[in-house]
């Protein structure tokens, strides 16, 4: 009898999806990975709801809007191990570059009116686009995070090394090459 497959989820919050591209760069190792995990939630899979009892959630992106906030809370509640994947999740990174510019309202005003169309207005009333948070936060500033894999994006070999360690139930490697920002 084979061991039950580990339930893996990948989550895409406020980021450019480069970390997911890097994940896909694992190429044929993905096939090996597929043999050992069941991908239960991912932007590259057709799932709409974050399921219960996830063993490992890889989270890309910072917490930038209300939807991210709601989703990360759910992810944390339903996942045994949460890994911040890439600089946006780990530090806020590019997504957080707006933080020095002010609150959400002030930034929208700057973008749509001050530096955009002086006769324009800030879009309102849409239920489709989630409201921005006043401050972009790294994931661990919102929920507890179990491990961190910085990099923008983290190169595929780093992702593989970390996944291999986690699949083997070992702590992820933390050598300088493995944890570099940028």
């Amino acid at each position: 009898m084979t061991a039950p497959k580990l339930r893996l989820a990948t989550v895409w919050l406020g980021g450019c999806s480069g970390c997911h591209m890097s994940l896909l760069d694992l190429d044929e190792w993905l096939i090996e990975l597929a043999a050992r995990v069941e991908l239960v939630f991912s932007p590259i899979a057709d799932t709409k709801r974050f399921p219960e009892s996830v063993d490992l959630a890889l989270v890309e992106g910072a917490i930038a809007n209300e939807e991210h906030l709601a989703l990360i809370t759910l992810v944390r509640r339903r996942s045994r191990v949460l890994l911040s994947l890439g600089d946006c999740a780990v530090t806020g990174n590019v997504t957080a570059l707006r933080n020095p510019l002010g609150t959400a309202a002030s930034i929208l005003q700057q973008i749509y009116v001050d530096h955009g169309d002086p006769r324009g207005h800030v879009p309102t009333g849409s239920a489709i686009v989630p409201a921005l948070l006043d401050r972009v936060l790294p994931v661990h500033a919102v929920v507890p995070v179990d491990c961190f894999l910085p990099g923008c994006p983290p190169p595929a070999p780093r992702i593989r090394a970390v996944l291999e360690a986690l699949l083997a139930g070992e702590p992820p490697p933390a050598t300088p090459e493995m944890i570099r920002f940028g």
């Binding site: 780990v90 790294p138 491990c147 961190f148 894999l149 300088p176 944890i179 570099r180 920002f181």
Partner: peptide, 10 residues
């Protein structure tokens, strides 16, 4: 320094 000193996050 961050990489060498094991700074995985802030």
């Amino acid at each position: 320094l961050a990489a060498r000193l094991g700074v995985t996050h802030v």
